[in-house]
Structures are given as structure tokens and as C-alpha cells.
């Protein structure tokens, strides 16, 4: 208490300057809260319902740059992971439909996760405005290259198997559950958090097989450490043309992941058109097309109505299949 007030104040200022310097490096514009008539008005937030680094996140980031260039505003990608993206989707639904708030929506969230949660929690495409489709991603069933499990017949003869899924309510879970049911293979699902841990579980022989998105499995397939058994696509994939589809093998399992850009319900047609145009231009850039090739993504750049129809069809098919074969994808309490 002997310190003089002036010295104390000088010290205070010193701390202030130091903290200022420190905080100045935080960087990053966390968004803007203004809204107006003219679109776009400030940054367009592109929310991703998954963690950074996953396929959905990478796709969002690949699109954000060219769209930002075209519209002349910032397009920050915001990760809001939780409940397979349901959390982000619910938040989006309550936001203003002025075109400043968009999200990358996954087909699995609409078509599969909704089979595993109570009706109130299900995400319905009708509650959103679809701007544009993006691309499709195939699932492939893989085993460890040393396991000797190369065909579905091998699986049938192997006795009880454990299979890794990329999570509850994902296409990975649905595709393998359906295949195992139809082929009468005795299998137990072990849910992991995403493709990379599921793949690691196969590589480390923790599980026998896993259904993984093709882009995530491809590096290990090329390295020869894992063996692709079947894909769950409609047609053979051009990068894996010696691997049969499940349908070719006689099991009617066709599951793919697809993604679309959506906004809150009731967006004005004018804003939707502007956004669709910006995304279409982004799809045509060289950087983006080579991104698709690298990650083995098949473009599905449909407009809102077309996409809604295709997705609704998938929703219906998946619901019928799970009911028909009595497949339980998780709790429905």
C-alpha cells in the first residue's frame, strides 16, 4: 500500500499494452450481425456440422474460397459439430433466411440419422431451402490385406465377425448392416467416430471389416494394406473398376453419402438464384474439379428441386429397407 498512485497507473498501462499485443494476434473475423435488403450484405457463414478435417469440412472449405471470390464477401467455414450435424442443422433452421447463413447438409443426416432419433429430433429437408447439390461419395467395404477376407463368400465362411462403422446413423452403418443381414453373415457393429478411426481399426486388426467412404479408404487400398471387397455404389467406380458392387454380387444394397448446400426455410428465389450461380461457378473452377478427382467424389450438382426429389427417394428407400429387414440402427427412445 506504499506504492504511489501514479506508479500504479503506469504499471496498469503496461499490463494493458502487453495484453493488447497478446490479444491482437487472435485474428479472424467472427462474423457480423448486420442484415439488410441488398444481398450479399457482409460475410456469408457456411456452417459444417462436423469436426474440422473430415470430408464434409474439406468440401466446404474447397467451395468457400471460390464462392467468396465470386460474391466479393467473406465466406467463413464454421464448424459446429454434434449429433451427426443435427445440432448445426437445428440452429440453422432458426436463423434468418436472408442468405447470410448457409450449411453443408449431409444426406445421411436427413435419411439415416432420422431413423435413429425420436420423430421430433429428426431433420427434415422440408424445413430448409436447398441451394444446390454438391457431390456423392461412395462407401466401400474393406478388410485387412492380411486377413484373407477378399470376397463376400469369404465373409460368409468366416463365422462371427466384428465390423467397424463410422458412427451411429451413418451410411457406413446402414450399408454394412444391410449387407450382413441379406448375406446372412453373423456380424456385430462397433461404432467409431468417423472414417479414419474405423480404418485404423481395420489396419490394426481390431475389427474384421469396415464400410468407409471411398476417398478415405483409397490411399490404403493403393498401398495394398487393405482389400476392397464390394462397393455400395450404383455402378462400378472408375478408380476401382475391378471391385464389384454389392448389387452385382446379388445383394440389393445401394448406399452413398451425398452433400448439399442449404439455408433456412423460405429464402427468396432471387437470393437462391444468386447463390446457386456462385456455387455453379465454383464447381467449374480447376481447383475444385481436381479436388473432386483427388477425393474420388462424384459431382451431383443438381438444383434445389432435383436434389430434393433424389434425396427424398433415398429417405424412402432406406426407411423401407430397415423396416423390411428389421434393422435397428440405434436407440429410438
Amino acid at each position: 500500500m506504499t506504492t504511489s498512485p501514479t506508479r500504479r497507473l503506469r504499471a496498469l498501462a503496461g499490463v494493458a499494452v502487453l495484453a493488447l499485443g497478446l490479444s491482437a494476434c487472435g485474428g479472424g473475423n467472427l462474423g457480423s450481425d448486420d442484415s439488410g435488403e441488398n444481398f450479399p450484405d457482409g460475410a456469408i457463414n457456411l456452417t459444417v456440422g462436423q469436426d474440422p478435417g473430415g470430408s464434409t469440412d474439406l468440401i466446404a472449405r474447397a467451395l468457400a474460397n471460390p464462392v467468396s471470390d465470386d460474391l466479393g464477401v467473406e465466406v467463413p467455414v464454421l464448424n459446429r459439430p454434434g449429433a451427426n450435424g443435427a445440432l448445426a442443422a437445428k440452429e440453422l433452421a432458426s436463423k434468418s433466411a436472408n442468405g447470410q447463413e448457409l450449411m453443408v447438409m449431409n444426406l445421411s443426416l436427413v435419411a439415416i440419422t432420422s431413423l435413429t432419433v425420436p420423430e421430433d429430433d429428426a431433420i427434415n429437408l422440408e424445413d430448409y431451402t436447398v441451394i444446390t447439390g454438391i457431390s456423392e461419395d461412395d462407401y466401400v467395404l474393406v478388410s485387412n490385406a492380411d486377413s484373407g477376407l477378399n470376397t463376400i463368400d469369404d465373409l460368409k465362411g468366416a463365422g462371427a465377425l466384428n465390423y467397424a462403422t463410422t458412427g451411429t446413423g451413418t451410411g457406413s452403418q446402414l450399408s454394412s448392416a444391410l449387407l450382413f443381414q441379406l448375406a446372412e453373415i453373423d456380424g456385430t457393429a462397433v461404432p467409431f467416430d468417423g472414417g479414419s478411426p474405423a480404418l485404423t481399426a481395420v489396419l490394426g486388426n481390431q475389427v474384421d471389416v469396415a464400410s468407409i467412404q471411398l476417398g478415405e479408404a483409397m490411399p490404403q487400398i493403393e498401398a495394398g494394406t487393405i482389400t476392397p471387397i464390394v462397393t455400395f455404389a450404383a455402378d462400378r467406380n472408375e478408380f476401382l473398376d475391378d471391385v464389384p458392387t454389392a448389387v452385382e454380387e446379388g445383394y440389393d444394397v445401394e448406399v452413398a453419402q451425398a452433400r448439399a448446400i442449404v439455408g433456412p426455410k423460405d429464402m427468396s428465389q432471387d437470393v437462391v438464384d444468386q447463390l446457386r450461380e456462385a456455387f455453379t461457378k465454383a464447381f467449374e473452377t480447376d481447383a475444385y474439379t481436381s479436388f473432386n478427382e483427388q477425393n474420388l467424389l462424384r459431382p451431383q450438382e443438381l438444383d434445389g428441386d432435383e436434389l430434393t426429389e433424389v434425396w427424398n427417394q433415398s429417405v424412402e428407400t432406406y426407411r423401407q429397407l430397415t423396416e423390411e429387414y428389421g434393422i435397428d440402427l440405434g436407440s429410438t427412445e
Binding site: L12, A13, A16, A19, L20, S23, A24, G26, G27, G28, N29, L30, G31, S32, D33
Partner: peptide, 18 residues
């Protein structure tokens, strides 16, 4: 008086947080 001014400069002017 100084502290709110200082935090305003950091969080509103500089970092543009919400």
C-alpha cells in the same frame, strides 16, 4: 474507465467478435 475501453478496443474494434 480504462478497462472497458481497453476490452472494447480488443474484442470489438480489433477482433470484431460478436
Amino acid at each position: 474507465v480504462l478497462m472497458p475501453v481497453f476490452f472494447y478496443l480488443i474484442f470489438v474494434t480489433l477482433l470484431k467478435t460478436n
